[in-house]
Computed example of a mutant assay.
Amino acid sequence: MDVLSDAIAAMRLGRPHSALRDKYAPWGFRFGAVDGAGFHVILRGTAWLLPGETCEDRAPVALGPGDVVFLAHGRGHVLVGELGAEIEDFGPLADGSWPAAPPRRTTGPAPDAVTLCGAYRFDRSRAHPLLADLPDVVHLPARVGAHPALRAVVELLGAELDSPQPGSDTITAALLDTMLLYILRAWWLRERPGDGMHPTSWSAALRDPGVAHALQAMHERPEHPWTVAELGAESGSSRAAFARRFAATVGMPPLTYLTWWRMTKAGKLLREDDLPLRVVAEQAGYATEFAFAKAFKREFGIAPGTYRRSA
Rank of each mutant, 00 (worst) to 15 (best):
M1N: 06
D2P: 14
D2C: 06
A7E: 15
A9V: 03
A10R: 10
A10V: 15
R15C: 04
R15S: 14
K23W: 11
G28T: 04
V34D: 05
V34W: 00
D35Q: 12
G36I: 01
A37V: 04
F39C: 00
I42M: 10
I42P: 00
L43V: 05
R44D: 15
R44P: 00
A47G: 12
G52N: 06
G52E: 05
E56D: 15
V61H: 08
P65N: 05
D67W: 00
A72R: 05
H73T: 01
G74R: 02
R75A: 04
G76R: 09
H77P: 03
L79K: 00
I87H: 05
E88I: 08
G91M: 05
L93Q: 15
S97P: 08
W98Y: 14
P99D: 10
P99W: 10
A100G: 14
R124V: 09
R126T: 13
L131E: 15
L131S: 09
L131R: 12
D133H: 11
L134Y: 04
R143Q: 14
L150M: 14
L150Q: 09
R151D: 15
V154F: 05
L156E: 15
L156M: 14
G158W: 02
A159K: 09
E160P: 06
D162H: 13
S163K: 13
S163W: 12
T170P: 00
I171L: 12
A173M: 05
A174P: 10
L181S: 11
W188L: 01
R190T: 02
D195F: 11
G196T: 07
P199A: 05
P199R: 04
H219E: 13
P222N: 07
V228G: 04
S238L: 06
R239Y: 06
F242Q: 03
A247Q: 04
A248F: 00
V250K: 01
V250T: 00
M263V: 07
M263K: 01
G267Y: 02
G267T: 02
L269Y: 10
R271D: 11
V280N: 02
A287Y: 02
T288F: 04
E289M: 09
F290D: 10
I302D: 09
P304S: 07
Y307L: 06
